[in-house]
Amino acid sequence: MMNRIKQYGMTLIELMLACAMGAVLLMVLSSVFASGLNSASRIGLQLSFDSQLHDLGQFIRADLRRAGFSLEGENAGTVRWADAPQTVYVSATQDCIAYAYELAEGGIEKVRFSSLYLNEEGELKLYTKQQSLAEPPKNIASACSGGEVITVSSEMLLTGFTVDLAQFPLIAVVMSARSPVSGAQDSSQLNVAVLN
């Protein structure tokens, strides 16, 4: 009589069932992983967009507070663009603001003339020109042209930029923006107190 040795292992059907169950489990896990990556990417884009809008607001607030600043105090109230009625000028359409302030750079006293305005492409442009105190002020007619783009249009498009001087020396700057990447929209209102 032949002795049969008992073999332990899986039958072909059991092996096929285990492979099928493993494949289904891998599909579910990969779907969850892909969904998590998409969510993380969306959240990252939103945080980047919000951070850029916040940083832009902080830059505008910090620079605008200096409007009319005089180093020695003897020029107080006169540090402005030529023909500007006051230290801060806003265009009739309220989409361009121009201001000036004195500063010392490398021991040399200068005036910095600045303006901010929204161009047709939804980018905020900053014009700056520094010159010595002895030179005549810049003419306000050139305030809302030229300069460099300070917002990255591939990450943030400004859909609105308005400035209100109704409560001067408190200046209200309202910005609304849209992310061309995620489509997210946000707005921000800055109430900037001119310190001079």
Rank of each mutant, 00 (worst) to 15 (best):
S142V: 11
A76Q: 13
G68W: 08
A143I: 02
L45H: 12
K129R: 15
G57R: 11
Q86P: 03
F113C: 04
S179K: 05
I140N: 04
N119F: 01
R178M: 11
G77V: 05
S70H: 09
I171L: 05
Q94N: 14
S70I: 08
V163E: 03
V79L: 07
Q94G: 02
S91E: 03
N139V: 05
S51L: 12
S187M: 12
S182H: 08
C96A: 08
T93M: 00
T87N: 12
K125C: 13
S182E: 00
E120G: 00
G146R: 02
R65W: 06
G147N: 04
L124K: 06
K138M: 15
S153Y: 06
I97V: 15
G183K: 08
P136L: 14
Q86R: 13
A100C: 09
S154N: 13
K129M: 11
D164W: 03
G122N: 02
S176Y: 00
D186T: 12
Y89P: 02
V111L: 02
A172Q: 13
A141K: 11
V174E: 13
Q52I: 07
L165W: 06
G122Q: 06
L124S: 06
E135R: 14
R178D: 06
P169S: 02
D164S: 07
G106K: 08
L64F: 06
Y101N: 01
K125M: 15
V173L: 05
L103R: 12
S187H: 14
E120F: 10
V111P: 04
A166G: 08
S114N: 14
I171G: 01
Q185F: 07
S91N: 06
T128G: 01
E148H: 12
F69I: 04
A166V: 10
P137R: 12
A98Q: 01
E135G: 09
H54S: 14
Q185C: 00
L116D: 01
A166P: 05
S145D: 10
Y89I: 03
L47C: 11
Q58F: 08
P169A: 01
V173Y: 06
H54Q: 14
L165Q: 01
A141V: 14
G122D: 04
T128A: 07
I60H: 03
I108D: 13
N75R: 15
L103W: 11
V152Q: 15
L56P: 02
D55N: 13
A62W: 13
L53P: 04
W81Q: 04
A177D: 03
S91W: 05
Q58D: 10
A67L: 06
T87D: 12
N119H: 10
S179V: 04
A166S: 15
